[in-house]
Design a protein around this nucleic acid. Structure first.
Lengths: 202, 202
DNA sequence: ACATATAACTAACGAGCGTTAGTCTAGCCC
DNA sequence: GGGCTAGACTAACGCTCGTTAGTTATATGT
């Protein structure tokens, strides 16, 4: 029992993280074995325990990091805006960040979107909490737009989920060699999201 | 090796289907054991093999049925329309059927949306084929609306996926005792979908 | 009533899983 | 240069998995 519990930032630990992320996202947590992960890194399964305490700890390490990076990515995008920026531009910035993350870092996105159920109960609760905060941050933008009269929505909570869900889905089908670049994808999604909060002349 | 290979429509087989559906949807295919399923039905794991040849066959039986019922549900909704019905009403009917299915039969929907990866390669291919046909049927409605000038979209394939994804997401969070009834949910989603194909005055 | 088929049971197999124990080796610090 | 430690290794444990074999009981059809 040598080193610090889990925060190890060594090169091998990062290789393990990378291999586990790809396989958890591609095949699912249950279908991925410790021997699979170790083999990708070029070591034996038992050696993984020099870097992580358990398989679930690897999943949680990855999930936690992905969710924090998703939030940080959004914060960066919104922080770049002038404080007086209106809701339309704030929504656009959120959607660009959201969709960009789900395309550019789709393995992390897939993990967050489909493997939360494999976490321990305590970690699952924390993940749901982070997700709720993330959702609330979009809802706040929409609510502000509605309050200011720039947005018109029939049901704000449902519209929030719809916008998130459109972008989340990107991680399921996006491929780097696809028809649209990430910038185009983000731009299209911004148009779609704005359409959802702008009741046209019916 | 007694009975017909797999088409058995006995009461016990249906109980097995029901139990497996719930647990596959709730916990995932890999995390559900044959002993879990058998226990829900009140029999032993070995007895499951009087009704199905393998665990994967249960999953495929359920997946296949769910996808066919999803398509049949859409066909019913569209068949009720007058042949001269315009694209807006056709899109509305599709979305009502799509969202209604994903709320009312969310276990089947979850299976189709998140457990396809556990199918054998041959079955997986068939499932992807059915999904592609389903997606194409929505795209055809959108294309028709664009061709007729009733719809204005920036990117038809992306808009198709966005509408599907909004509805698909419902199966992940809908609960029968939730804030909105299924009818309300469908009506809201129709509004959202129509907003996506109707470029307002920007 | 008796043969037959259906569908349950108990028992177990072989494989694979996450994980642990104990060992060996190479590089770093005094 | 000798001790120490990080991190790899081999071996194996205990468990659970899907599945099979063989047996038994309960209905049904004539």
């Amino acid at each position: 029992m040598p080193q610090a519990p889990s925060k190890a930032r060594t090169a091998t630990a990062d290789e393990i993280r990378q291999a586990a992320l790809e396989q958890f996202a591609r095949s699912g947590y249950d279908a991925t074995t410790m021997r699979d992960i170790a083999s990708s890194v070029g070591i034996k399964a038992a050696s993984l325990y020099n870097h992580f305490d358990s398989k679930e700890e690897i999943l949680w390490d990855l999930t936690r990091a992905a969710m924090h990076e998703l939030a940080a990515n959004r914060d960066d995008a919104l922080a770049r805006l002038d404080p007086s920026t209106g809701p339309r531009e704030r929504l656009a910035a959120f959607v660009r960040a959201h969709v960009g993350f789900h395309a550019e870092r789709r393995y992390q996105a897939v993990l967050v979107n489909s493997q939360l159920g494999s976490l321990s109960r305590a970690h699952h609760r924390k993940a749901i909490g982070l997700r709720d905060v993330y959702e609330a941050s979009l809802k706040a933008i929409i609510d502000a737009g509605v309050a200011g009269g720039e947005f018109k929505v029939s049901d704000a909570p449902l519209t929030t989920l719809a916008i998130l869900q459109m972008g989340t889905g990107v991680s399921a089908w996006y491929r780097p060699d696809g028809r649209l670049s990430i910038d185009q994808l983000c731009a299209e999604h911004v148009k779609l999201a704005l359409a959802l909060v702008t009741r046209g002349p019916q």
